[in-house]
Simulated scan of single mutants.
Amino acid sequence: MAFTVYLSGEIHTNWREEIKRGAAAKGLNITFTSAVTDHDASDAAGDHLGPESSSFWRDHKSAKVNAIRTKTLIEQSDLVVVRFGDKYKQWNAAFDAGYCAALGKPYVTLHAEDIIHPLKEVDAAALAWATTTEQVVDILAYVLRD
C-alpha cells in the first residue's frame, strides 16, 4: 500500500527529516508533503502581488497564497502529522488540525507531555498522540502493514 502523509507544524527542528529517515529505513511506501518550511519565504508568499500598507495585509495576503498549497496537500493526503514544538506557539498547526477534523481527515499529533492541556481539543480529535518521531514511524509502519 502507498500513502501520502502531510507533515504540518513546527519548522525549527528536524522532526520531518527524522520521520522521513525512519520511514525509509522501514521500507515504507510513503510520499511526504509539507508546507513551505522556509519561514522568510512563507512570510513573503504574497509579496510578488504588490506592497501593502500594513503588516496585517501583508500577512493576510501571504496566508492566502500559502493556503493554496496547504489546503491542496492536506486534502490530497491520506494522513496528517501535526507537530507542536516547545519554542513557539504553532497557531498554523492548530488550524491545520482543525481543518483535518472538519474534513474527516485522519491526523496524529506529535508533542511533548507538558502541552497536553492546551492541546486537549486538538488531541481529542486526533486518532493518535505521539511524543517522539519514532512513535510516528511505528504508527505509519502499522498502518501500512500488509
Rank of each mutant, 00 (worst) to 15 (best):
V65F: 14
N66Y: 04
N66E: 02
N66S: 12
N66W: 01
A67R: 13
I68M: 12
I68H: 14
I68P: 06
I68E: 14
I68W: 13
T70Y: 10
T70V: 15
T70D: 13
T70K: 06
K71I: 15
K71S: 15
K71V: 15
T72C: 13
T72A: 12
L73V: 05
I74V: 08
Q76A: 12
S77Q: 08
S77A: 13
D78R: 09
D78P: 11
D78I: 15
D78W: 09
L79T: 02
L79N: 06
V80P: 02
V80Q: 02
V80M: 06
V80L: 07
V80N: 03
V81F: 00
V82M: 01
R83Y: 07
R83A: 05
G85W: 00
G85A: 03
G85K: 00
G85N: 05
G85D: 03
D86V: 08
K87E: 14
K87N: 12
K87F: 14
Y88T: 08
Y88D: 09
Y88I: 07
Y88G: 04
Y88N: 10
K89D: 14
K89N: 09
Q90G: 08
Q90R: 08
Q90H: 11
W91I: 10
W91S: 04
W91E: 14
N92L: 12
A93Q: 00
A93C: 06
A94P: 07
A94H: 06
F95S: 04
F95R: 04
D96N: 03
A97W: 05
A97E: 06
A97R: 06
G98S: 12
G98E: 09
G98A: 09
G98D: 03
G98R: 10
Y99G: 06
Y99M: 09
C100V: 10
A101E: 08
A101T: 10
A102H: 14
A102N: 09
L103N: 08
K105Q: 13
K105C: 07
